[in-house]
Simulated scan of single mutants.
Amino acid sequence: MRYGAGIGGALLASLLTLSACAEREMPLAARIANALPAASVTARGETEPVGTANADAADDPAIWRNAADPAASLIVGTDKKAGLYVYGLDGKRRDFLDAGRVNNVDLKDGVMIRGAPGVLVVASDRNDPAQAKLALFRLDTAAAKLIALGTLDGGAGEAYGICLGRDAAGLSAFIVLKDGTINQVMIDAAGAAPTGRIVRTMKLGSQAEGCAVDDRTGRLYVAEEDVGLWRFGASPTAPVEPVKVAAADGRQIVADAEGVALVPEGDEGGYVIVSSQGDNAYTLYSLPDERYVGRFRIVDGTVGGAQETDGIEFMAGDFGPEFPGGLFIAQDGPNGAQAQNFKLVAWADIVAALGLE
Score class of each variant (00 low, 15 high):
121 V>R: 02
109 D>C: 07
56 D>H: 01
40 S>R: 13
40 S>P: 08
131 Q>G: 04
77 G>K: 08
54 N>T: 06
96 F>N: 14
137 F>I: 03
73 S>V: 12
42 T>W: 08
130 A>K: 14
107 L>Q: 06
56 D>Y: 03
64 W>E: 14
119 V>K: 07
55 A>W: 11
37 P>C: 02
48 E>L: 07
58 A>G: 12
90 D>L: 10
46 E>G: 01
130 A>I: 00
54 N>E: 13
60 D>I: 00
115 G>F: 14
69 D>Y: 05
103 N>F: 04
117 P>C: 06
40 S>G: 06
58 A>S: 13
47 T>E: 12
137 F>P: 11
128 D>S: 07
64 W>L: 09
58 A>T: 12
135 A>R: 15
115 G>R: 13
108 K>M: 15
71 A>L: 07
129 P>F: 00
118 G>M: 04
127 N>C: 09
72 A>F: 04
113 I>E: 06
99 A>E: 14
108 K>Y: 12
76 V>C: 08
48 E>W: 03
91 G>Y: 14
96 F>C: 06
38 A>W: 10
30 A>C: 02
111 V>M: 13
40 S>I: 06
122 V>A: 03
44 R>I: 04
35 A>G: 02
128 D>L: 03
97 L>R: 05
28 L>I: 12
102 V>Q: 04
79 D>H: 08
52 T>R: 00
124 S>T: 00
96 F>W: 11
72 A>P: 12
114 R>F: 10
104 N>W: 09
47 T>L: 01
81 K>M: 11
45 G>Q: 06
101 R>V: 10
61 P>A: 06
95 D>K: 00
71 A>V: 15
119 V>Y: 01
124 S>P: 13
42 T>G: 08
60 D>V: 00
127 N>K: 02
133 K>H: 01
130 A>M: 00
101 R>T: 08
108 K>C: 09
68 A>H: 13
63 I>K: 05
49 P>N: 11
111 V>H: 14
85 Y>W: 10
120 L>K: 10
40 S>F: 03
29 A>N: 05
58 A>Q: 12
85 Y>A: 10
73 S>M: 11
82 A>Y: 09
48 E>S: 14
37 P>T: 11
111 V>W: 07
39 A>M: 10
30 A>N: 07
95 D>F: 09
138 R>I: 05
43 A>G: 13
31 R>E: 01
55 A>G: 02
134 L>E: 00
70 P>Q: 10
90 D>N: 15
139 L>D: 01
62 A>K: 02
53 A>N: 01
113 I>S: 05
68 A>V: 07
36 L>M: 01
56 D>M: 01
34 N>M: 06
45 G>Y: 07
108 K>W: 13
102 V>K: 02
136 L>K: 00
92 K>S: 11
45 G>R: 07
77 G>A: 03
55 A>F: 05
64 W>H: 09
128 D>T: 12
126 R>Q: 09
97 L>H: 13
60 D>T: 04
32 I>S: 03
75 I>T: 08
30 A>P: 03
67 A>S: 15
120 L>Y: 00
53 A>M: 14
28 L>C: 12
